[in-house]
């Protein structure tokens, strides 16, 4: 277990940098994590972060396909907003655990 100081607050994260307690997350922290990932967050990014946090809170699986059906962006748009490994990157920025989905 490790800690990380984001937006002036110290939070607990795992060795890969994912939040241990999603309730500690704030939008200011998201902006800082995104910067580490080389991303500048837009309104659309925040809509997606909200979507993922809500889905995580209700215990639903986080899948790329689910994001594609969110009505916020299509799958291509999701890859565009979080280039590389979008699901992992978005989860890290959203302050939720690393998704364990294969699809």
């Amino acid at each position: 277990m490790a800690t990380k100081t984001l937006a002036g607050v110290t939070v607990e994260v795992n060795e890969e940098g994912y939040f241990l307690d999603p309730s500690k997350w704030t939008k200011e922290m998201a902006v800082e994590i995104a910067k580490e990932e080389g991303l500048e967050l837009t309104d659309q990014h925040f809509l997606l972060l909200d979507f993922l946090r809500t889905r995580f809170a209700t215990g639903e699986a986080l899948t790329i396909r689910g994001v594609g059906k969110s009505g916020i962006v299509d799958i291509k748009g999701f890859y565009g907003l979080f280039p590389g490994a979008p699901m992992k990157k978005a989860a890290k920025i959203a302050g939720i655990p690393k998704p364990a989905s294969c699809i």
Partner: peptide, 13 residues
């Protein structure tokens, strides 16, 4: 997903 949707997902990424 069905095969065609799976292919869509792969090329979308």
């Amino acid at each position: 997903p069905d095969v065609d949707e799976f292919l869509d997902m792969i090329t979308a990424g």
